[in-house]
Design a protein around this nucleic acid. Structure first.
Lengths: 345, 345
DNA sequence: ATGAAAGCGCTAACAC
DNA sequence: GTGTTAGCGCTTTCAT
């Protein structure tokens, strides 16, 4: 079914049919009705490629995330999708598999698909800049959550320092004086910012410098790092994790090592994933305002579409912290005792 | 950058440039070299829309899943993406939000994007058929994991009866004689098949009929259903869950209710999500061979592209069962005692 | 083997 | 207000 089919069925010219269907110009109501009728009767629906080729617009935004199996990024994608759906647009999702080369390829692919804009969560704070700034030359691009230095694009993120500050302040309020950090290598802006904030905010704890364990954003790393911590001298009062998926591994290791959480060690993390409430003890976590961030990201894309020359803007929103068992009541103390009993038996 | 640009830079006609770049026909090696040189120098990359409009082929497969935030579906998508990447194609992912109307809209959207084929995990065993069979009229379509009756398309799935059989047999081997089922309403083919299998395989346990709790594929439902079970008379020896995300809720409720798993009640589930190993006790689960299923799905799509008239085919693969703490050792018995102690204190 | 020309389906200029 | 025409970027006859 093409416009021509609809047009001839409605006895009008293709251009008139097109005008009616896109609701652009004024057309005779009688004609319009005939076109609409024919259109629905023939179950017409415009070919997206042809339209895009002509209008150079696809009503589609490309989104590139480092790992589609990371629930935090899925949350971000869903938030963006919601905003786009609300404005009659859609989204193409690409996974860069935490690899700069793949990321560059995906960006290029999306450009060839003529997406109207690009939301990128960059893989690397340094290496991602090239592909991003190249794309930004002829396409609105916004970096979300993480930023690649020199990307030269708009950015929307969460105030990482503030998140860590809220968390550490809370832990201190619960009596914590010694701290550890289990996070990712500071190759991404968020990992870097969280680590820096941790250092700045625990400068009074000289031991904290030796309890910085940096790996990647995986549960496996959380497990490994927690074992290292457990096997290397006295435990700190609290552990700050760089991400919930890391914290998950930390919690399982602490349980296996019969370390009571929060009785013996308090744990707090970032991202506030859904599963933070599904583990035991439930995990305290710093929460980024993803819905707001997504809204702003799309707004920035739209603004730049209108005015490509507008100055680059960085929008940073304040996070909140969700306090749960892992940093609050020492409920697990008796549980640890039971585990010890099991060990003896 | 267009073919014309490349062509004139290489002093050849656009058609020759096109021929070289798509590697179709024989061209003079010298010319070919010039074209390639110009192409890379100008960083040319073909416009996907224009090419698709002409060739009616996009090297892109559309995938429609009921919920992108369900890790099981993400696993399926990743498996498909892998197969496609290996063959130089890509994928557009759509979320039908567990809604038949949205599903139909997404299918239509993908059709307008001229995807070469469609992989659908249908929302409903009955209501999804219309949109799916309509799409299948002029596009290769394969249903994955779930099937809508009357969809009239190829299908790739897992042997649901066999999965339940493996699980129940295992539970019986561990001494279980009474059973409960916490799953989803049988509005999807998998939920239905699992429930039927459960009934057939626990026909000796008259109480099991009253311990069928049917809701939806959410953790929330798992929690609710488990509370109902806990509050309604003696617990069964084992609970079979329809999906890991349900089982997650079941486990948290059982823990909150001081029911020892697997000591008092054994739990087994379906999907074998990553987080099945992250909870305590680790969750036993029936595992579908997603990689194999994805491979077969793409193969069926390709086969139908070649021959649209080929007979409809259903490929069903055998699942395996991953046995973990939740259905094995009664490790949690002492833990339950500790919880009881907490309660008294 | 190569170039000229047509056309995929759509919409924006341009005439009337 | 409406129809005619051209062209988005690409590939593919069709001639040569």
């Amino acid at each position: 079914m093409t416009v021509k089919d609809v047009a001839s069925a409605a006895n009008v010219s293709p251009s008139t049919a097109s005008r009616v269907l896109s609701g652009q110009a004024d057309v005779d109501p009688a004609m319009a009705r005939r076109v609409h009728e024919a259109s629905t009767r023939l179950r017409y629906s415009a070919n997206v490629m042809a339209r895009a080729l002509r209008t150079r617009q696809t009503d589609t935004i490309g989104v590139v995330v480092p790992a589609i199996n990371n629930p935090y990024f899925i949350g971000a994608v869903e938030a963006i999708a919601q905003v786009l759906t609300d404005t009659g647009r859609s989204l193409i999702l690409c996974d860069s598999h935490d690899d700069v080369a793949t990321e560059a390829r995906q960006i290029e692919l999306l450009r060839n698909r003529m997406v109207d804009g690009l939301v990128v969560i960059p893989v690397s704070a340094t290496e991602s800049a090239a592909a991003i700034s190249a794309a930004a030359l002829d396409l609105p691009v916004v970096q979300l959550d993480r930023v690649a230095e020199g990307g030269g694009t708009d950015f929307v993120g969460s105030d990482e320092f503030e998140g860590v500050r809220l968390a550490i302040e809370h832990l201190r309020g619960r009596g914590a004086r010694s701290f550890a950090f289990i996070g990712a290598q500071p190759t991404t802006s968020t990992a870097d910012a969280r680590l820096r904030a941790f250092r700045a905010l625990t400068s009074d704890d000289e031991g904290a410098r030796e309890r910085e364990l940096l790996g990647d954003f995986t549960t496996e790393w959380g497990r490994t790092a927690a074992w290292t911590l457990v096997n290397s001298g006295p435990l700190p009062d609290a552990i700050m994790c760089g991400a919930d998926i890391i914290a998950l591994g930390v919690l399982t290791t602490l349980r296996a090592a019969n370390v009571a959480v929060p009785g013996q060690v308090k744990v707090i993390s970032h991202d506030d994933l859904f599963i933070a409430t599904m583990v035991s003890p439930q995990l305290s976590s710093v929460r980024q305002p993803l819905a707001t961030m997504a809204q702003e990201a799309v707004a920035l894309l739209d603004a730049r579409s209108k005015d490509p020359e507008r100055p680059v803007r960085k929008s940073v929103f304040a996070p909140t912290v969700e306090l749960r068992e892992s940093s609050l009541l020492p409920l697990a103390a008796t549980e640890a005792a039971a585990n010890a009993a099991t060990e003896r038996a």
